[in-house]
Computed example of a mutant assay.
Amino acid sequence: MKHTFLTAGLVALLAACQPSAQFLNKDITGSGLKTETPLTAADGENFQLNQASPQVTAVFFGFTQCPDVCPTTMGQMKLVMDELGADADKLRVVFVSVDPERDTREILKQYTSTFNPKFIGASTDLANTQKLARDYQITFEKVGTGPNYMVNHTANSYLIDRAGKTRVSIPYNTDAKTIAHDIKQLLK
């Protein structure tokens, strides 16, 4: 019995000595942000953001007709891949459309491939997009009418660890080195 308590004490001590992740962006580990909403990738594959994966996932919610925030963010993610070097294959970048009316699978594939052929464009129907937005506490709204409408949307990106837990919120226009640092923390 004494041996069991000693072993349990040593295990607890070793666990306490393990360094915890030190993120440069906002640590939202305890936020509970997650979704079970199914998405369809541009290649037709079905998946969920918060499923366990062998890769860390960087997710951004946007639309392909976006004139500024979306291409800037996707460009930053391309630079993040460069910054990660040999670890780039351990990152999955997912661009989730908040404009399922216009963002077809073909358009999403073309858009994400412009930045990196490995980036995943994903979407679902409007009802599930709204549910996904509630799950991640993001907002989006259609502005204007006709074919050239805009979509106002939350500009943060998120990092999901390999266990499927949303861990980091990244503000718009964060530099690639800072994002890569947090991804490396999740890869430890």
Rank of each mutant, 00 (worst) to 15 (best):
D27G: 04
H3N: 07
H181W: 14
E45I: 03
A155I: 03
L13M: 14
Q51G: 06
F60A: 02
V80M: 03
K78G: 09
M77P: 01
G44C: 12
D125P: 08
Y172V: 01
Q22S: 15
L13A: 14
M81F: 06
F5T: 12
T35R: 08
T29F: 07
T154A: 12
K184G: 14
G164M: 07
N148S: 10
K184N: 10
K131G: 09
H3K: 14
N128E: 14
T40Y: 06
M77A: 07
L49Y: 11
C70R: 00
K109C: 03
D87P: 08
K34F: 10
F60T: 05
T104S: 15
Y149Q: 11
F60R: 02
A133S: 13
R92T: 01
D68I: 04
K26G: 02
Q185F: 02
F60D: 01
L79A: 15
T35A: 09
R167C: 08
I107P: 01
L24M: 10
A58M: 13
V94H: 02
S157L: 03
P171Q: 08
E83T: 15
V143L: 12
K90Q: 15
I170V: 15
F95C: 11
L132S: 08
Q137S: 13
D175A: 10
V98I: 08
T40C: 09
G121F: 12
D99T: 09
S113L: 08
V96Y: 06
T124C: 09
T4E: 13
C17M: 10
L33D: 06
V151Q: 10
N148D: 11
Q22R: 14
P71R: 01
T64W: 02
A133W: 03
N128G: 12
T154L: 03
L14G: 07
S113M: 06
M81I: 03
P117N: 04
R102H: 11
K142E: 05
L49H: 10
T114C: 04
A8I: 06
K78F: 00
F63A: 02
G9L: 15
M77S: 04
T139C: 02
V98L: 03
V59T: 00
N50W: 07
Y149P: 14
F61Y: 07
A58D: 12
A41S: 15
S97G: 03
V143R: 08
F140G: 00
K109M: 10
Q48H: 14
S53V: 05
A8T: 13
A16G: 10
K184S: 11
G144W: 06
F5N: 13
A180C: 15
V94Q: 09
S169L: 13
R167H: 08
T145Q: 11
V151S: 05
D87V: 03
M81R: 07
D182V: 07
G32D: 03
G30K: 11
S20K: 15
T154C: 05
N50V: 05
L126H: 12
I138Y: 03
E141S: 12
T72K: 01
P67G: 00
G164Q: 04
M77G: 01
A16I: 05
T129S: 11
A88T: 00
G30W: 00
M150D: 15
A15C: 05
Y172W: 00
D99R: 06
T7G: 09
M1Y: 02
Q55L: 01
